[in-house]
């Protein structure tokens, strides 16, 4: 498939919708957390206030050009992940640029933002930022193991690495979903998802109060605004990815929202139930059950 300029506006629209869903979920999740703690919790539209507020900050500082570019890298990575993701199955308008890449692109694009952010945080000269990044990197190296295994298992099962084709292969009812046809891979993938969603028990990277909040300690105002934009887009991109490869994708936005929300709830629920791991504990955890499950997943293909 070749590039069509009309893709651009449609992709941006899709991106915006994803962003809105992300903002909504970002309001919704703390609400859940609050309800679990018997609080009323934030207003569901609170993220929008915070968002605007961050862009309304009048003064700002910069530690250098990498510091300045860090959030740009971060958001580019997040947006890129959405732009190369087929959002709605069968829709030309919302298939974005999925023809230009496949799962591998998605997987490695994830690191684009991570790396840029890490570098930006690094240039702030704040030791806690570096500590946070070190923790994050250490954790991600193992959290990716089950994810990669699950991906490989799914790719081998459907004989393709292309996300669109994997979605297409799952159409025709719940019985065709990877969740049903390959439950082990799905379980592995869902365990991996826990590790990358920055929820407890795997949120020692941010660890508020201990290393204030890790990497973004020095970021504020507009920078933080851009990072917040990414916080709405990036997890959504991951969720949609999981939806696409394990849960049959979505044929319209309602299904996408529903499935996305359900998948998002999984790490949230685990997060409110379990306390936080130290980094070495989480590394060891990923090297046990998820790894074995993952090996089982590829062995069964």
């Amino acid at each position: 498939m070749n590039f069509d300029p009309m893709k651009i506006p449609w992709s941006l629209l899709g991106l915006f919708i994803v962003f809105c869903i992300g903002m909504f979920i970002r309001g919704f999740v703390p609400k859940i957390t609050a309800r679990v703690g018997k609080r009323i919790g934030i207003r569901i539209y609170q993220p929008w206030f915070d968002y605007v507020k961050n862009f309304s900050i009048q003064t700002s500082i910069t530690h250098g050009y990498m510091f300045y570019l860090g959030p740009v890298f971060r958001l580019t990575g997040g947006i890129g992940m959405v732009l190369f993701m087929p959002l709605i199955h069968g829709s030309w308008y919302f298939s974005n640029f999925a023809f230009a890449g496949d799962m591998v692109l998605f997987l490695y694009l994830m690191f684009f933002g991570t790396l840029g952010m890490a570098l930006g945080a690094g240039e702030s000269g704040h030791p806690y930022s570096a500590i946070g990044v070190a923790r994050g990197l250490a954790q991600v190296t193992v959290a990716e193991i089950p994810l990669v295994l699950a991906m490989l298992a799914v790719a081998a099962q459907h004989h393709t690495l292309s996300i669109s084709q994997i979605v297409a292969a799952q159409q025709g009812g719940i019985a065709h979903w990877t969740m049903v046809t390959n439950p082990v891979a799905t379980a592995t993938g869902m365990l991996a998802l826990l590790g990358s969603m920055m929820n407890s028990p795997f949120n020692v990277v941010l660890a508020p109060q201990e290393i204030p909040i890790g990497p973004p300690t020095e970021y504020h105002g507009t920078f933080l605004g851009i990072l917040t934009t990414n916080r709405s887009i990036f997890p959504m991109a991951k969720i949609i990815f999981f939806m696409n490869i394990f849960f049959g994708g979505a044929t319209n936005w309602a299904i996408l929202i529903l499935k996305g929300w359900l998948i998002y709830m999984w790490p949230v629920i685990v997060g409110v139930v379990f306390p936080r791991f130290r980094v070495d504990q989480s590394i060891r955890w990923f090297l046990k059950v998820p790894l074995l499950l993952g090996i089982l997943a590829v062995a069964l293909v």
Binding site: A100, G101, D102, V104, A155, S162
Partner: peptide, 9 residues
């Protein structure tokens, strides 16, 4: 299995 188009990426 897969595709990629570097200039578009």
């Amino acid at each position: 299995y897969g595709t990629f188009n570097m200039p578009i990426i």
